[in-house]
């Protein structure tokens, strides 16, 4: 049963990745195009609406008369790009910081980095990302000559939320390895510290952090959509799953109450697929868990 679930998760994730990558090729309309039911009147929210100019919108339109299906496709793309790149960046950062602090355990560098991380860890879950996006704004921030895109702002905020825990994990698996004889032998050979960390130490400490980061993918989708839902997503007209959900929710008490289920179900499906896939990857990578399962 567990294995079938993992396959299902993998299939769903692949389908979504396909949508994200090839979306622009098969999205029926532009995500910002507004359709009208008759000249001067925006298209009402409904399923299978037909516009004044004769286009049929498969999933109807949102409150501004934009094609729901196209927005969903582009929104999936935005959400996935933000969540995957934030987990990827956070993991890379955590591997670098965790292996360095683990190798230099007890040093001033370790103390400073870990106290900063402890400070970041005091913020519960998504709250830190909310604060950061609210502070930086959704228009993008200027870093020297470069101005970030709104999406990058959200990625940075999420990286700040994910990195602390991942770094702790990486540091935790690095410390016991750092005391092993093969590291001492490398030191005796006169190997420079950066080389010891990069080539000897870190490759032996990756399992735990990779397991954790795959389970974070689901959380990242959830967080991205959550930020969008709270109005902290990328600015209009850029679609994003959480933002689409927030818009449909404005009409929840109308007769189009079911409209909320279209983005809602999409988000749930993505989170579910990533979580199941993350569990599957853990089972493959974590031998302890695998043996535990074999005993049953």
């Amino acid at each position: 049963m567990g294995d079938k679930l993992v396959v299902l998760g993998a299939v769903i994730v692949l389908v979504f990745l396909g949508i994200a990558i090839f979306g622009p090729q098969f999205a029926p309309y532009d995500f910002a195009q507004q359709f009208r039911a008759s000249p001067g009147e925006l298209l009402p929210i409904s399923v299978m609406s037909t516009t004044a100019t004769g286009e049929r919108l498969l999933l109807g339109s949102d409150a501004l008369g934009r094609d729901m299906l196209s927005r969903l496709i582009y929104g999936t793309r935005t959400t996935l790009v933000i969540s995957i790149s934030s987990v990827l960046l956070a993991t890379i950062l955590a591997i670098v910081l965790g292996s360095l602090t683990g190798y230099l355990e007890g040093s001033l560098f370790d103390e400073i980095v870990m106290r900063l991380i402890d400070a970041l860890l005091t913020f519960p879950g998504i709250l830190l990302a909310v604060i950061l996006v609210a502070a930086w704004g959704t228009q993008g921030i200027e870093i020297g000559p470069v101005t970030t895109t709104p999406e990058m702002t959200i990625v940075f905020a999420l990286v700040f939320t994910f990195t602390p825990r991942l770094t702790r994990t990486m540091r935790g698996s690095t410390i016991p390895q750092a005391h092993r004889a093969y590291i001492k032998a490398a030191q005796l050979m006169g190997m420079p510290a950066w080389r010891i960390v990069a080539f000897e130490l870190a490759p032996n400490c990756l399992t735990a952090v990779i397991i954790q980061s795959t389970t974070y993918l689901g959380l990242a989708v959830f967080s991205t959509a959550g930020l969008g839902f709270l109005g902290l997503g990328p600015a209009e007209p850029q679609p994003e799953l959480g933002k689409i959900l927030a818009r449909t929710q404005e009409y929840f008490l109308n007769r189009q109450f079911w409209h909320i289920f279209i983005p809602g179900f999409t988000i749930s499906l993505l989170v579910f697929a990533f979580s199941v896939l993350g569990d599957g990857i853990r089972n493959v990578l974590d031998p302890e868990y695998r043996f535990e399962k074999a005993d049953v």
Binding site: A181, A186, E200
Partner: peptide
Amino acid sequence: KKVQLLFQYPRESLNPRHNVRTILSY
């Protein structure tokens, strides 16, 4: 470098991720 040490547990003193060629190359 002229002063070296041979460790008590050889399995511990060789990186499990590297083959003998890599271990000796450095």
